[in-house]
Each structure stands twice: as C-alpha cells, then as structure tokens.
Design a protein around this nucleic acid. Structure first.
Lengths: 196, 196
DNA sequence: ATTATAAAACGTAACGTAACGTAACGCAAC
DNA sequence: GTTGCGTTACGTTACGTTACGTTTTATAAT
C-alpha cells in the first residue's frame, strides 16, 4: 500500500477522478454500449491518451469506474444462518436489480478474462458476496446448524449463480421472493437431519 | 409452411446460408469481438446491404449464427431422475465449456434485451435445457420420486444458473464433477423423506 | 402464348460519422 | 536533466445508410 515512489511526473489525481466520475455517469445514464474512450475524454475534459495510459480499453475503464463507487455487498446481520443469508441475498438482489446490475454483467462479459484488471473486478464486485456467504455457511456448520456434506463451492454457486442467471437471461424477475426461495432451497439441501 | 408466393425475387437461400456460415466461422475462430458486418460480408462474398436487410446489427447476426448450428441440449436418457438429470447436465456443460460457451454469453450480454431476436435466442439456446429439466422434475414428482414443495422456478435457476455463473465469472472450472455435484445438491433439496 | 409491368432482392460503390489507437510535442514534477 | 503526464493531431477501421443498375420472380395485358 506504500506509494512506489516512481520517478517523473506523477499522474494528476484530479484528472483520474474526473475520468472515473465521467465513466460512471455515462455508464448509469447511457449504458455500457455508450461508454467509449472518446465520450469519457470529452465528458471529463481530458485527452484520450491520458486515459489510455491508465486503462487499455473501454471495458477496463468501465470496471475501474464500477469498482471505484461500489460498496460491495457483504453485510448479513442476524442470528440464524437463514436470517443472515436472507438479508445478504436481498440486498444483493436489490443492488443488482437496477440498471447497474446489467451494466456489470455486460462489462464482465466483454472483459478479457485473463486481464489482471478483470480478476480484481471479479473479486471485488462479483465474488465478494460469495465469499461472505461461504463464511456464513462455515460458521453455521461449526454451530451444528447445518451439515456440509456436499461440495461447498458448488453450493455457493447454486446460491449466487441464479442471481446472475436471471440478471443476464431475464426470464424471471429479480425480487425479494427470489432471494427468500433461494435460501429456503439451499438450506433444505444442507439441513441437519436425523435420518442419516 | 406453404411458401407465401410473394412477388418479386425471392431471397437467395444460398446467400443466407453463406452469411450464417461465415458468421459462425468468424465467431469460433476469432470471437465475438471480431464479428463485424464488414468481415462477414467480405468472408461470405455477399454485399453488406444484403446482411442489413435481414439483421439489424452484428449481435443479431451472431445470435442467428449460433442458433443455426446448435443442437440444443435437451436429451436426458435414463431411468431415474438422477441419471437423466446428470446426463443432461454433463452434456450441457460439455457444450458450454468450449469457446462457444463464452461467445454465447458475450452475445447474450451485448444483445438488446427487448429484441424479438434476443427472445428467440434465449428460448432456443439458453432456456431449452431448463425447460427439459422442468419436465424431468415434474415427471419424477408424479412418480413420487421427489417432493416439489419449493418454488420450482427457483429450483431450476439453481440448477442451470450456476453453469452460466462459472462460464462468465470463471472462478472455477466447468467439468463433469460440477454437473454431478449440482444434481446431488438439488436432489437433496427435494428428497422425499419420512421426516415430515 | 407471349410480352410487359411491378416488386423484391442482389452486388457494387460511395458516403458521412464515430471511435479506435498512436506519434509527436510541450511542460510539469521530480 | 530526466522522466513521464497531458494534449493536439493524425491515420485507420467499422459503422450504418444510400443510390444505382442488375437479376429474378409473380402478375397483368396483349
């Protein structure tokens, strides 16, 4: 986290901030399709090469903009696993049900999967909630509230994957009932029962 | 199915086929990013206006190309629900694990969600397997093999959503073990048990 | 039956626009 | 003084559209 003390003229912090702000505004107002380097340069009053020095293309810029203003859904207060998980899923879905959710999905789809930028984006924006969910499940298992006999990674994908699925495919709505049902089914699969 | 016998010169079937073939080839060889109307026109030896008469933009063309050469994963032979569902999931994952899977995801993300073309693409390429899965589950429930107390739609999303999730996010591999685990967990959630 | 007319789709060529990505240059910060 | 940011300017690619002449077909007129 220490500044590497690079030589020469340092990047203009203000310019960088204005670039990200402009990118984010365009993203929410016009969508990912309109997020071009030209448009961001024009809107932020910055030259194109200034942008290209920091980001290789428009989709990296989009990811940076989305990361710079994203809380990251992690919270999940509550005593029982069900209440904590339900709370998290509801706020996750609420955050993704907006236009921004679709922008995130489009950005991810368009991004180079190998890029370091993409990996950071994945971890911070996409997978952070999944990690929080893993913690919740492991704690509950330690309390004996559930039995994790199945593959935990797959179970997590079955909880968080459907959100993306509906977001991208759009065959059914993203609402709170969806959040509740996912949790209910997932808990059914890991219920600690007598019959075994 | 009767030919509408419209007046004037009928569309050249051969040209349409060559367009779709060229589009599909570019898609698999170079990816969605390289699929431009110009490139397809050049490769297929067809004029650009001929393409634009049929498709509004490159992503519609991509969807058409993907649909034209897609078997559609529906099969699922087997006696028990588990074997049928596992068979289907394995072939689904096998089909999506290739480069084509990612092209499909990118195409879907880039497409206009309202377009009729997009809806057809969704139904034929994305949701057809989900529909087949619904049929399998309903049959098994009728046989008393499982108990569908939860929301069936959500359960289906929890089975098929994770495939897209891993495909798009890429945090874990798409392999046969994944298919098997999904089925195992899903069946656990709908198991017909004595304890209720 | 033959001929003419209208309609539709074809290919070619060209257009203005948008966005791309980079080279070159000055200047600011170290 | 050197390094590297920021800007201006440029060439390139692809877009989506238009105009044009040609080809193919169905229908109407002779």
């Amino acid at each position: 986290m220490s500044p590497p003390k690079r030589r020469g003229r340092p990047p203009n912090q203000l310019a960088q901030a204005r670039i990200l702000k402009a990118a984010h505004d365009i993203l929410t107002e016009d969508g990912f399709g309109r997020l071009t380097v030209e448009a961001v340069a024009a809107r932020s009053g910055v030259g194109k090469p200034t942008i290209y020095r920091q980001w290789a293309n428009a989709s990296e810029l989009a990811m940076a903009a989305l990361m710079s203003r994203d809380p990251g859904i992690i919270a999940g207060g509550g005593t029982s696993l069900r209440s904590a998980l339900t709370g998290q899923m509801r706020s996750l879905i609420q955050a993704f049900a907006t236009t921004r959710g679709r922008q995130i999905a489009m950005t991810l789809a368009a991004a180079d999967p190998e890029s370091e930028f993409t990996k950071a984006f994945r971890n911070q924006v996409i997978l952070s909630s999944r990690e929080a969910g893993r913690a919740l499940l492991l704690e509950a298992a330690a309390r004996g509230e559930i039995m994790l006999q199945q593959d935990l990674e797959v179970l997590l994908d079955m909880i968080y994957g459907p959100v993306f699925y509906r977001l991208l495919v759009g065959h059914r709505p993203l609402d709170t009932g969806f959040a509740d049902s996912i949790v209910a089914i997932a808990l059914e699969a890991v219920a600690a029962r007598a019959d075994r």
